[in-house]
């Protein structure tokens, strides 16, 4: 029990971030018109490409001789980049359509 409390204590800032982010995420898109559901989802998908940062860190820490880890990390970087770049470009293309005639 005490160890768990200690764990919470030492990760308290992260726990705060999580709780506040949950409410922020809900608040921030609360009043979106249904027309924008698809672009918003697509934009959100681009944002969850932040996972690329984890992939970069993993990749950068792999010792040069470890080819299995290098290849897995390399794949992760490619996939993460696809998510980020593709996501933002597709979203932009969708929104471009909306703007043209506004």
């Amino acid at each position: 029990m005490e160890t768990i409390l200690n764990w919470i204590q030492s990760h308290i800032d992260i726990i705060y971030i999580v709780i506040l982010s949950v409410f922020l995420g809900i608040e921030v898109i609360g009043r979106v018109p249904s027309v924008l559901h698809t672009p918003l989802m697509s934009g959100a998908i681009a944002i969850n490409g932040v996972v690329i940062i984890g992939a970069i860190i993993v990749m950068g820490k792999v010792e040069p001789g470890n080819y299995v880890a290098l290849i897995i990390g390399f794949l992760a970087v490619i996939l993460g980049t696809l998510n980020v770049v593709g996501g933002f470009v597709v979203t932009d293309r969708m929104l471009e359509m909306f703007k043209k005639k506004k």
Partner: peptide, 26 residues
């Protein structure tokens, strides 16, 4: 966000949780 936990990385954490929450609401 799990990755954010793992590396103590705030941007992954906020980005991930933000999308997680917004995505659920959406």
């Amino acid at each position: 966000a799990c990755g954010g936990f793992l590396y103590d990385n705030q941007v992954m954490l906020t980005g991930g949780i933000l999308v997680g929450a917004a995505g659920t609401l959406l």
